[in-house]
């Protein structure tokens, strides 16, 4: 199927050669983002000498990691023209279950991470089943499950915080334990996931199918693509990544887990994805762009704090960044269609 699509046999009967299926390695949006991030980093470096030091950049990368990680799953979902606004609530559920288990039993790192990923995947499965097989618009379903997840999370919390967390997840944290050779583990893991996801979306047959589903679900189904299992998969993957990201959040926090863990992250993740050039209408997007989007958002947030401006200003810049990024994307699409 996909080999058919990708092979570019010269047209023998005089018809034009098929349009190329694979996008260029770096899309326009990614180039723009790299430029903006470079300009911002240089400006911040000039204005606050402390910015371009490892004491400032490394925490930034650690903070980017969970957002970009969930962003990878969200990119998959949005490419299929879906959306998941329940990730914030899912972070809360996975974080509270994992940390309560760690406090109660003191399980070591690997089982704790696997538990977190498992719980996250289970929540993603609920979303995926309802979206793929219930045939309901994804935003409605995930608004609904967000409420249900929040209920579950708060029930686990009882009415207090989780106290006395062990230092198991310090390997994902900001401190010395979170780095090897100066590279934060959480960011390295995120880079690895981004790389695998990039390869999958670009070169695996089912990865290309996700774009087909987002472009035209009906056409994709008629072309023999198993739409429902693939859509289900995107939500399960997102859930699993939420589970892993929850470990990062716990590792970045203190020894107390607050009930507000994850709050508001769903919109931040979606912001990172759309700033990264993924079309909310489906059918177009890259995980590399999402990583850049997450870095841009985090740069703005840390930059505002380091300049000594009121931290609430960062949200204003995030809003402006979304409008600017999507606006240039829309204009580029328009001019491409005209030419």
């Amino acid at each position: 199927m996909s080999t058919n699509l990708e092979s570019r046999s010269p047209a023998t009967d005089g018809t034009p050669a098929p349009r190329k299926i694979l996008p260029s390695l770096v899309t326009g949006q990614e180039g723009v983002l790299i430029g903006i991030i470079a300009v911002l980093w240089i400006l911040l470096g000039l204005l606050t000498p402390a910015f371009l030091t490892s004491g400032s950049i490394l925490p930034l990368l650690v903070a980017v990691a969970p957002i970009a990680l969930i962003g990878v799953g969200m990119t998959f979902i949005i490419i299929t023209a879906g959306i998941d606004v329940s990730v914030a609530a899912a972070i809360m559920v996975t974080a509270v279950i994992t940390s309560q288990t760690m406090v109660a039993t003191g399980i070591p790192l690997i089982p704790a991470v696997l538990l977190s990923i498992g719980v996250g995947a289970l929540l993603g499965l609920v979303n995926g089943l309802l979206v793929a097989y219930g045939k309901i618009h994804a935003i409605i379903i995930t608004f609904g499950t967000a409420n249900v997840f929040q209920f579950i999370g708060l029930r686990f919390f009882g009415s207090s915080t989780v106290n006395g967390l062990p230092d198991t997840f310090d390997v994902f944290g900001r401190g010395e334990a979170g780095r090897t050779l100066g590279i934060p583990h959480s960011f390295a893991i995120t880079l690895l996931v981004v790389a695998v996801a990039w390869w999958y979306l670009r070169h695996a047959a089912s990865g290309r199918h996700l774009f087909a589903i987002g472009g035209n679900e009906n056409a994709a189904r008629l072309a023999g693509i198993k739409v429902k299992p693939l859509v289900l998969m995107t939500y399960v993957i997102t859930g699993a990544l939420v589970g892993l990201a929850a470990c990062f959040f716990i590792g970045q926090g203190t020894s107390t887990l607050e009930q507000s863990v994850g709050a508001g992250r769903e919109l931040l993740v979606i912001a990172a994805v759309v700033i990264g050039g993924t079309s909310i209408l489906g059918g177009r997007g890259t995980v590399f762009g999402t990583l850049l989007g997450a870095i841009l958002v985090q740069t703005v947030t840390s930059g505002v704090t380091q300049l000594g401006w009121p931290s609430q200003l960062s949200d204003l810049f995030v809003g402006v960044a979304i409008i600017a990024a999507v606006g240039t994307d829309i204009l580029r699409e328009r001019s491409r269609r005209k030419s």
């Binding site: 959306i83 919109l267 912001a271 949200d315 995030v318 999507v326 829309i330």
Partner: peptide
Amino acid sequence: MGFPPLIATLATFYALKS
């Protein structure tokens, strides 16, 4: 401008909240 409503109002959500 042709922004998808979800994105446009997400952006203004951030900006106006701030």
